[in-house]
Structures are given as structure tokens and as C-alpha cells.
């Protein structure tokens, strides 16, 4: 009998540390999403059979335009001309990865469930563009980075995948697990004038 999936994101000690210092009117808020699974898919965008198989399993388009994310049942991020990240509810990730694996088994493709290695941070609030600009060299002006855009870049000294998912604005930050504590501490420090609040999903 497998155990039920009850993942720790590893930020629990940081949240405990910060729990005493709640900001009254934060200019930005960070929600740590613990309920998401991550599947890395590799294959050739030019391989129609591969794209079709993946899209059939996902029930949505595989974005082939660089630096875009398909926001539907799953969030499907373009990572490179032959690489995508699918973010989906954690409970369904292993099963979805299995189906993707099966559907692409006769072509040049690779499917890996990497749910344990990534953390999703949802960044919202009026000041979140200012906050990101302190550590990220991307142009995040609404005219330059719109809803449905995503980019792999850096925030401070950590690599991230960043996407704008709505005009609130809401940014989705995907970061490797081992860097997430650093990034959250950096956000806490960089955002102390704007006010920043953390919460667990």
C-alpha cells in the first residue's frame, strides 16, 4: 500500500519564523502552493506525432511559441524548443505522467515526474512588479510581459520560471526546491518597504 501523497515543500521552518511578523497592509503577498505536481516533458516540437500524442493526453495545446504558457486544465509552460513543464494538481500528477509516458513511448520523447523538486510561489499585490524588478532583469512592464507570457530567468541569484497568469497582477514563480528558502528570504528582505506577507496554500 502506497502512502497518501502528503508532500512537504520545505518552507515550513521559514513560515514558522515569519509567523510572528505579519504585515498589516502588504504591497505583495506570496502563497506557497503545496498541492501541485510537476511533469517535465521533452520531445521535438516539429514531431507532429509527439505533439498530437501529448495534446491528446493533456486535452489542451502544447505551446510551441517560445516563452508562452497555456493556461487551461493544466498550466503548460514552454521551456525550450523541445522541453515543456506541466503543472497540474499533485494528486493526479503521477497518473498523468504515466499516461504521457505511454502515449509518447514510440517516439523520441522523455517524461519525468519532478514534483518533488519544485516549489510554486504565487506572487500578488500592487507592488509585486516593483519587487520583482529588484532582482530580475526581465522587462515586466504590462506592455512587454502580458498574461500568458512566461520566461526562465533569475530573481536575485536563483533561477526561476516566471509567468503572468492574470492582470491583477498575479505572477507564478516556479523554483527548484533547494533554492526556494533562499528566494523567500530574499523576497522578505527586498520587500520589507513594500510589505510582504507569506501564506501556505
Amino acid at each position: 500500500m502506497s502512502r497518501p501523497l502528503d508532500r512537504r515543500h520545505g518552507l515550513e521552518p521559514l513560515l514558522a519564523e515569519l509567523s510572528g511578523s505579519r504585515t498589516a497592509d502588504p504591497g505583495a503577498s506570496v502563497t506557497i502552493r503545496n498541492d501541485l505536481g510537476h511533469i517535465n516533458v521533452r520531445g521535438r516540437a516539429a514531431d507532429a506525432g509527439f505533439v498530437q500524442s501529448v495534446e491528446q493526453v493533456l486535452g489542451q495545446a502544447l505551446p510551441v511559441k517560445p516563452n508562452t504558457v497555456s493556461l487551461d486544465q493544466h498550466e503548460v509552460f514552454w521551456l525550450g524548443p523541445d522541453e515543456w513543464l506541466i503543472v497540474t494538481p499533485a494528486a493526479a500528477a503521477a497518473e498523468l505522467a504515466g499516461r504521457l509516458q505511454k502515449a509518447t513511448s514510440d517516439t523520441h520523447a522523455s517524461v519525468n515526474d519532478i514534483s518533488g523538486g519544485q516549489v510554486v510561489l504565487i506572487l500578488q499585490g500592487a507592488k509585486c512588479r516593483d519587487l520583482l524588478a529588484k532582482g530580475c532583469t526581465l522587462d515586466l512592464h504590462p506592455g512587454a510581459f502580458a498574461v500568458g507570457d512566461c520566461a526562465q530567468s533569475g530573481i536575485a541569484r536563483a533561477n526561476v520560471l516566471l509567468a503572468l497568469v492574470d492582470e491583477m497582477p498575479t505572477f507564478m514563480i516556479v523554483i527548484r526546491r533547494s533554492f526556494s528558502d533562499y528566494l523567500c528570504r530574499w523576497l522578505t528582505h527586498a520587500g520589507r518597504d513594500e510589505g510582504i506577507a507569506f501564506k501556505d496554500s
Binding site: 521533452r42 520523447a109 519525468n112 519532478i114 518533488g116 519544485q118
Partner: peptide
Amino acid sequence: FLTSLTDH
């Protein structure tokens, strides 16, 4: 295809 599993 190569995929990093270091953090996973």
C-alpha cells in the same frame, strides 16, 4: 534527452 532530477 537529459532531465535534471537533482532536486526531485
